[in-house]
Amino acid sequence: MSDLVQRLITAHRNLNREIRRELARRLPDTLRLARLKKERLAVKDRLFRHFPDASHMNRVIRGAPRRARHA
């Protein structure tokens, strides 16, 4: 997998994390949320340029290395 795709996947995950963090706040900043969601969509669009078949993209993203999660 190319470095660009890896960076896009990482950026998408980081944006998801920031969106969840903002939503968890007592008073979420709606402007920040809108900006984060817009950025996330732009990253997703760039990923789709590399993987026009969404099912293939999902398999690649799920298989991409990520930090281990502990339950």
Score class of each variant (00 low, 15 high):
D29E: 10
L33K: 02
L47E: 04
H50V: 04
R13V: 07
R20V: 00
D45E: 13
H12C: 00
R17D: 06
H56Q: 14
L47M: 10
P52R: 06
D29L: 03
T30V: 11
R20D: 03
A11T: 08
H12M: 02
V5E: 11
D45P: 00
E39S: 04
T10A: 15
A54Y: 08
V5Y: 08
R66N: 13
D53A: 07
A68K: 12
N16Q: 14
L15D: 00
N16P: 00
A64E: 11
R67P: 04
K37G: 10
F48L: 14
S2C: 11
K38V: 02
R62P: 00
D3A: 09
A68M: 11
L33H: 05
A68V: 07
H12Y: 10
E18T: 08
R21S: 13
D53R: 11
A24F: 01
Q6S: 15
R66H: 14
R46W: 09
R21F: 11
H12W: 05
D45F: 03
L4G: 06
H70I: 07
H70Q: 06
R46G: 02
R67I: 06
P65G: 07
H70P: 00
A34M: 08
F51V: 05
F51D: 03
A54T: 07
E39F: 01
Q6T: 13
R13N: 11
P28Y: 10
E22A: 04
R20N: 06
L23E: 15
R46F: 05
R21P: 00
P65D: 07
A64T: 13
R17G: 01
L8I: 07
I61K: 02
R67M: 10
R46S: 12
L23T: 03
K38M: 06
I19V: 13
Q6V: 12
E22S: 03
R7I: 04
E22F: 02
A64R: 05
R49A: 14
K44T: 09
A71E: 10
N14H: 12
A71V: 08
A34N: 14
A24V: 00
G63H: 07
I61H: 02
L8G: 01
R69Y: 12
R40D: 06
A54P: 09
L36F: 11
D3E: 15
F48I: 11
H50G: 02
R59M: 15
A71L: 12
H12P: 00
R59H: 13
R59K: 15
R21H: 13
G63V: 02
R59S: 15
T10H: 06
L47Y: 07
R62I: 03
R66E: 13
A34L: 12
E18L: 14
R20Q: 10
L23K: 15
V5A: 14
I19D: 04
R59W: 11
R66T: 14
D53K: 05
M1K: 11
R25S: 14
K37Y: 06
A71P: 08
A24Q: 09
A34P: 00
R62V: 05
D53L: 07
D53S: 04
L36P: 00
L4Q: 14
K38Q: 10
R26E: 13
P28V: 09
E22R: 00
R13F: 02
L23A: 06
R69S: 12
H56T: 07
A42S: 12
R69Q: 14
G63W: 01
R62Q: 10
R13S: 08
L31S: 12
L23D: 05
T10F: 04
Q6P: 00
R69I: 04
H50K: 10
V43W: 00
T10D: 11
